[in-house]
Write a protein that binds this DNA or RNA. Sequence first.
DNA 1: ATGGGATTGTGAAAATAATCACAAGGGAGA
DNA 2: TCTCCCTTGTGATTATTTTCACAATCCCAT
Lengths: 212, 212
Amino acid sequence: MADGLIAFPKATISRFPLYFRVLTDYNHQDIALVSSEEMAQKIGVTSSQIRKDFSYFGSLGIRGAGYDVTYLLDMIKEILGMDKKRRLAVIGAGKLGMALAGYSGLKQHGLEVAALFDTDRRKWAQGPGGLTVFPLTELAEQKEKLGMEIAVLTVPAVVAQTVAELAVKSEFKAIWNFAPVRLKVPSNIIVQYEDLVVGILTLSHHLARKFG
Amino acid sequence: MADGLIAFPKATISRFPLYFRVLTDYNHQDIALVSSEEMAQKIGVTSSQIRKDFSYFGSLGIRGAGYDVTYLLDMIKEILGMDKKRRLAVIGAGKLGMALAGYSGLKQHGLEVAALFDTDRRKWAQGPGGLTVFPLTELAEQKEKLGMEIAVLTVPAVVAQTVAELAVKSEFKAIWNFAPVRLKVPSNIIVQYEDLVVGILTLSHHLARKFG
DNA sequence: ATGGGATTGTGAAAATAATCACAAGGGAGA
DNA sequence: TCTCCCTTGTGATTATTTTCACAATCCCAT
Ligand SMILES: NC(=O)c1ccc[n+]([C@@H]2O[C@H](COP(=O)([O-])OP(=O)(O)OC[C@H]3O[C@@H](n4cnc5c(N)ncnc54)[C@H](O)[C@@H]3O)[C@@H](O)[C@H]2O)c1
Ligand SMILES: NC(=O)c1ccc[n+]([C@@H]2O[C@H](COP(=O)([O-])OP(=O)(O)OC[C@H]3O[C@@H](n4cnc5c(N)ncnc54)[C@H](O)[C@@H]3O)[C@@H](O)[C@H]2O)c1
């Protein structure tokens, strides 16, 4: 990390999305103040961990009272970079790609799927929610037109590397990759791996240890 | 952890699924021996970390040569508890539930979706791949009949807690939860949370720090 | 305006994890 | 069999993360 700003613990950053969500909840319920203990219960971490995490960003709370939900939410939005909306391109309009495109949880967090792309001409059409599936060849063009920044890879594993390279060439700055493959891309491209099999295999491991 | 076996570092356990997959790959390509360095490249971790992880289970490799793919795979299968097949019940036959049910990556790892469940009668039918969508009321009955152990929760967040309780009552031993909600279940139930929004928000955060 | 109860913010300590660096083998060819 | 080369296995070291514990201090009731 050679940026001018100080870096925060990775473990801390990975918890911020959880804080964001729970605070959004409180906000919807018109709760003005919450304690670290209250949040801790709901998220499943310790209260001291929450306070420590927040402390990296200064004194966000009110001693004796708790945290101001609206204020804290604004701070976290800024920290997570969510004051700015982001548009996504889903590449691979298959089962998973379609599910993600129709997932309301993304838009709730300022993330909007703006278009899908596929090589299969039978998919080229209006998708759910007025979304269009474009031929993959139009990726670069539509990226500019629609202002998309993040490429979501939901293509078969064998073509993931190739498609990733096309995304890089099309000047996407970040890739959210669901294919179970480690991508080789320039180091200035941000890649987030989402490997569902790891989760279920971890569960399977615990199951085996516990029950055999 | 009060079991009789020694516990391994959590971080180590979380990497075993990665090892499992890369070794399965080598196996398919009929590669007999691999070095830790070779695997490291492919997975994106350091070679010493791999060796350290394996060392908790004894000397699995051959000095000067590397690791025997087949042997190591067998060991890891045992460690992950994958010598035993597991059957899953997908609860919530919506967009995500259907995608998971049709996902070949699961079966490749000995995990089979045996049936789906939904409260919406319009979904009660033969799904893709000969899978049946049952009324939720038949959960306990079909669990026994089909020998399912893991409940996959792909229902809307608001009903996730209720459905989880039904799964517990139906004697599922583990829950793989995709709803963005922390579940309150007895401590003997294993819960694995799969929170996709965390991944994309983490990416969003990196994007904001890097480019603003 | 004062005191009591609550909760934050944070150094210090403890726990956990990653990295380093190299001795200890094992394999293969002469 | 001997030697050279390669890669493992692992103590020691360093880095990171979590937990602990309590002083600081803010709110509110009186
Ligand atoms: N289905 C799931 O639940 C699930 C879960 C985890 C991970 N994944 C991963 O996500 C990926 C997609 O899975 P899926 O189940 O949606 O598969 P799918 O077959 O339903 O969809 C893949 C889509 O990609 C398209 N495609 C193929 N080659 C392409 C290319 N070069 N460029 C653009 N599009 C192309 C296909 O036409 C198809 O529409 C796979 O890598 C899979 O391992 C899927
Ligand atoms: N779609 C995605 O890509 C995605 C990604 C991440 C997380 N999720 C989460 O997964 C869950 C499902 O998302 P989705 O997009 O598939 O929604 P969906 O609306 O397509 O599917 C939900 C299904 O659950 C069924 N259902 C409702 N109440 C039920 C009950 N009490 N018992 C059984 N079934 C019931 C509905 O009939 C529907 O078929 C949500 O919690 C969502 O937050 C979805």
